[in-house]
């Protein structure tokens, strides 16, 4: 019988993380995670509690470990290294940023590998059987909008990666916590008090960072892909009006390409898949400052399937 991660006692999960590791399946990927850091165990227990617990799996996509380097330095300035296949691709970060470091590392694994998908830096949600893809540069308000939409019933596929199938152009879910930064943390806490947050990581290179738990519906449907419906380019404009305007598909194509991790790498196949994605999506620019108005706009949009 399989159990969920939240069914485990936190101490037991911590001991597994310190020894053989936790096999975490999220979307099409399997991570093996090892760490002796308590806050990593706490974050995984809380934010990935809905995921199935596996103590062993036959195949692992990403073998990662988060631990202190074995040196004197750890005694004076406690820092952590992120190990990927026994390599350390990043500089060490303070122990207080452990869970954020794990999430960033997990994102990196997908961003630089897994070229069997067209990958965009985008939030992806689903409503009425169609996917809303929101490609955006950091600081555009993408994650805040994504969190708010999920809290109002949209299914979360991903806050970070739009994975487009090269076979049928559908969006593949990889449902993981939503990363919120700085002011958006307070905004979402005020927007919905039921939101569940992981460990707060302060003074990171992105400022204060916290991760928000996906809802049960999104986590449960983490293996069901969705056909594209809308591509929206969000932009938070302080005190600006809520505005959804149509965008011609050709420039939407170029903008989405700018936000892709591997569009050029995929060559002609990338061009074809991006063409199909854009063809199947109604494309818009969206600017907002008020989340309630934004939700209302997207609710209306969801009734207009592409």
């Amino acid at each position: 019988m399989t159990s969920r991660i939240s069914d485990l006692h936190l101490d037991y999960l911590h001991s597994i993380l310190q020894s053989s590791g936790l096999y975490l399946k999220t979307g099409p990927f399997t991570y093996r995670i090892r760490s002796s850091v308590r806050s990593v165990a706490e974050g995984l227990h809380l934010l990935y509690g809905q995921n199935q617990f596996h103590q062993k799996m036959e195949f692992v996509d990403f073998d990662i470990r988060l631990d202190s380097p074995n040196s004197l330095r750890r005694r004076f300035r406690p820092k952590l290294d992120f190990y990927f296949d026994h390599q350390t691709p990043f500089k060490p970060l303070p122990l207080t940023q452990a869970f954020a470091f794990l999430e960033w590392g997990m994102n990196w694994c997908i961003s630089v590998h897994m070229n069997q998908y067209l990958k965009l830096h985008a939030a992806v949600l689903e409503k009425n059987g169609r996917a809303l893809v929101m490609p955006a540069a950091p600081g555009s308000g993408k994650s805040t909008l994504c969190a708010a939409l999920m809290l109002r019933g949209w299914r979360l596929l991903s806050d970070e990666h739009a994975l487009v199938s090269l076979e049928d152009n559908s969006l593949i879910p990889v449902c993981r916590p939503i990363s919120l930064k700085n002011r958006s943390i307070k905004v979402i806490k005020q927007f919905d008090s039921s939101a569940v947050f992981g460990p707060l990581c302060e003074d990171t290179h992105k400022g204060t960072v916290v991760h928000m738990k996906p809802d049960a519906q999104s986590a449960a449907l983490d293996n069901q892909s969705v056909k594209p419906g809308w591509m929206v380019f969000p932009k938070y404009v302080a005190e600006g009006d809520t505005r959804l305007t149509e965008r011609i598909k050709e420039t939407a194509f170029l903008k989405a390409g700018d936000q892709s991790f591997n569009y050029s790498l995929l060559g002609a196949q990338g061009f074809e898949v991006m063409s199909n994605l854009i063809e199947a999506s109604d494309c818009y620019n969206f600017s907002y400052s008020n989340l309630d108005e934004a939700i209302e706009t997207f609710e209306k949009l969801s009734t207009t399937a592409a």
Binding site: I248, K249, E250, T251, F253, G257, Y263, G267, A268, E279
Partner: peptide, 23 residues
Amino acid sequence: ELILKSFGNETLLFHSASGDTLL
């Protein structure tokens, strides 16, 4: 390979040698 694509407004060109896409 040189691929042209239009969605009805403008025309995109994909140039396989560089991987670039131009309007």
